[in-house]
C-alpha cells in the first residue's frame, strides 16, 4: 500500500511539461493497472455475489408457488434471527474456544520452530502443513474412525478399563470443537510462524544483556513483536471456523449444529434461498463487527501490520 501511494504521490508532484505529464499519467495509471486483475476478480466473484446474496435475502415466495421474487421482505431477517439465535451464539462460542485452543497449541510450536528449528525449519513447517495435502472431508472422516466408540483410541482405553463402556467422544460438542481446531490449526500456525520468524533474534539477546529474565524478554520483546501474527491467526481461524459446517455435520450430534449447518440445510435441502441468504448476511455482518472491534482493541496499526505479515 505504502509503495503504491508513493507512486501516485510522485506522479502528482511531477512537473507541468507535457512530456512529463504523459509519463506522469502513465505512472499514475500503473497502480490501477496492477490492481485491476485482482479488483476485477473481486468485483465479479465477491462484490456481485454479495449484492446477489443481499438481493436474495429480501425475496419471498417458495418453490411450489413458482419461485421467489424480490419484495423487500425484511421478515426473513427477524424470523431467522429469532429462530436461530442459539445457533449463532453456539457457533461463535465454539469458534472462540477453537481459536484460543489453536493459539495455545500453535504458539509454542511455531515459537520453537522459528527460534530453535535451525535447518529443520522448513521440514517442521511442512509437517504442520501436511494435513492440507489431504482433503478436508477425508481428514474429518478419519477422525470418526480414530475417535470411534470402539476405535483405536477409545477402544484401547476401554479395553484397559480406563473408560466406562458407554463413554464416547463422537457426537458431542467436544468432538466438534476438537475437529475444527485440528482442521484450522495450520491457519493459526502459519501467520504466527511468519511473525515469529521475522523477529530479530538479536533483540532477545539485547534484552538478556540488559538483565531481562527469559520470561521478561519474551513478554516485553517477543510477544509484542508477534502480536500482528496473533491478530492474523485469530482472524484467519475465528472467521472461517464460525461458518464451518463440515465438522459439526460429521462429528457432531444432537445439539451441536452450527450456523453453517443451518445455512447449508436451508440452501440445499429446504431450498429456502431467502432465509439462507439472510442468515449468511447476518453471519457476515456479525463477523465484520467482531473483527473490527477486535482490530480496534488491538489497534489499527497492528491490524495493518498483521495484514502485511500475511
Amino acid at each position: 500500500m505504502a509503495e503504491e501511494e508513493s507512486v501516485v504521490g510522485g506522479a502528482a508532484s511531477g512537473g507541468p511539461t507535457s512530456g512529463r505529464r504523459t509519463l506522469g499519467r502513465r505512472r499514475r495509471l500503473v497502480p490501477y493497472g496492477l490492481l485491476s486483475p485482482g479488483g476485477g476478480y473481486l468485483v465479479v466473484f465477491f462484490l456481485l455475489p454479495l449484492v446477489l446474496m443481499i438481493y436474495t435475502s429480501l425475496q419471498s415466495g417458495g418453490l411450489l408457488s413458482g419461485g421467489f421474487s424480490f419484495t423487500w421482505d425484511w421478515r426473513n431477517y427477524s424470523s431467522v434471527l429469532s429462530r436461530y439465535e442459539a445457533h449463532f451464539i453456539r457457533s461463535i462460542a465454539y469458534s472462540l474456544i477453537v481459536t484460543f485452543v489453536a493459539l495455545l497449541l500453535a504458539y509454542p510450536m511455531t515459537y520453537w520452530i522459528a527460534f530453535y528449528g535451525g535447518k529443520w525449519k522448513s521440514s517442521l513447517l511442512l509437517m504442520i502443513l501436511m494435513p492440507f495435502f489431504v482433503s478436508f472431508v477425508i481428514r474429518t472422516l478419519q477422525w470418526k474412525f480414530i475417535l470411534g466408540d470402539n476405535g483405536p483410541v477409545l477402544g484401547t482405553l476401554k479395553g484397559f478399563g480406563l473408560l466406562p463402556d458407554d463413554f464416547r467422544v463422537l457426537a458431542t460438542a467436544v468432538a466438534v470443537v476438537a475437529g475444527i481446531t485440528y482442521n484450522f490449526l495450520p491457519f493459526t500456525a502459519l501467520p504466527l510462524y511468519v511473525a515469529l520468524e521475522r523477529i530479530d533474534k538479536a533483540l532477545v539477546e539485547a534484552a538478556k544483556d540488559l538483565y531481562a529474565s527469559r520470561w521478561q524478554a519474551f513478554r516485553k520483546v517477543v510477544w509484542p513483536l508477534s502480536l500482528p501474527g496473533v491478530f492474523a491467526a485469530f482472524l484467519l481461524t475465528f472467521v472461517p471456523a464460525t461458518g464451518d459446517y463440515v465438522n459439526a455435520a460429521l462429528l457432531g450430534g444432537p445439539g451441536t449444529r452450527m450456523i453453517g449447518n443451518i445455512i447449508q440445510d436451508k440452501f440445499l435441502t429446504e431450498n429456502n434461498y431467502p432465509e439462507a441468504a439472510a442468515l449468511s448476511v447476518i453471519l457476515m455482518i456479525a463477523m465484520v463487527i467482531l473483527a473490527s472491534v477486535y482490530a480496534r482493541i488491538l489497534g489499527t496499526e497492528e491490524a495493518t501490520r498483521a495484514a502485511a505479515a500475511v
Binding site: G61, G62, L63, L64, S65, A86, H87, P254, G255, R257, N261, I262, D265, E270, N272
Partner: peptide, 21 residues
C-alpha cells in the same frame, strides 16, 4: 405430499427444530 409453500413452512417449523436444535 405438501401442496403449498405455506404447508411446507409449517412442516418445517414443526420438524426442523428437532434435528437442528
Amino acid at each position: 405430499a405438501l401442496e403449498t409453500d405455506e404447508e411446507a413452512a409449517e412442516w418445517d417449523a414443526i420438524f426442523l427444530p428437532i434435528s437442528q436444535g
